[in-house]
Amino acid sequence: MSILIIAEHNNKQLNPVTSSLISAAQTISQEIEALVVGHQCQSVAEGLASLAGIKKVWLVDQSACKYPLAETIAPIVESIADKYTHIVAPATTFGKNFMPRLAALLDVAQISDITQIESDDTFVRPIYAGNALAKVQSKDTKKIITLRPTAFPPVTETQTPATVEALNIISENTLSQFVGLEKSESVRPELTSAKVVISGGRGLQSADNFHLLERIADQLNAAIGASRAAVDAGFVPNDYQVGQTGKIVAPELYIAVGISGAIQHLAGMKDSKVIVAINKDEDAPIFEVADYGLVADLFEALPALEKAIDELKTS
């Protein structure tokens, strides 16, 4: 068996989710190769080649591949797919976008968002917003898999770099063109890999009030998330959304502030190690998954929390 991992990156840095793919792949086979598609991304390929477990890195580096358009990347992966029994990408908006297209080109039924690997053909994946787990066995000879990065530990050990070999595949995408990316600039850790996440919901009442979370996020080196209700209300941009259809997080500590706990929000955070809920409604469903629940008005609790953490840090 031989596995191909598709690297997620921004041409400068490897997205840490890629290293979770390696540890997951290792439970199936040690024959793990990786593909980096991008532009001026040699350093990304070299960094990946140094991660323990990678046997070889293939690099497609050309200006047409600067942005990971599905119409560009799917045919490139298809052209080298023959050699592999498993092709794996992260279940992020990057992987979710092109992998089903690739699967269709290969006439393979994709297995989405797996959280456990039982064997080389049997996988567990959450369905119904994580309210059920489906164990599925694939009958396809080639497995096309997207994998939930938070369910597998990242590989951090390094090795003597594996070979990086350039592939001369010319992209022929005439269907789609990149126009622009409106990024939410943040100095905070990335939401899906942060050790601490503090999220706000409709209870915060306005975009301005999200600043109350920022100070605590700074103290705890936390990422800031939000419920769908808060995003829909325009308090914060879409990429803050934690939930079934937003980002899936599993930090050491998740603090939910003014979030009622709709099923689709719980689907995105209930694998967090420790969950804290602060809500003035004592019947809010968020308390059912919280390890520590505080029934309180968040406008009183947040300043008090900021002060208490300050005192803890200086004591």
């Binding site: 369905i127 066995q137 505080l294």
Partner: peptide, 26 residues
């Protein structure tokens, strides 16, 4: 192309506790 082997419920989270103040929480 896939056989559904089993559907199961996720492990429930163990019962949490209520705290009465921010000080107790921290």
């Amino acid at each position: 192309r896939q056989t559904l082997m089993q559907i199961s419920a996720p492990e429930p989270r163990s019962k949490g506790q209520r705290v009465n103040s921010v000080a107790e929480l921290v």
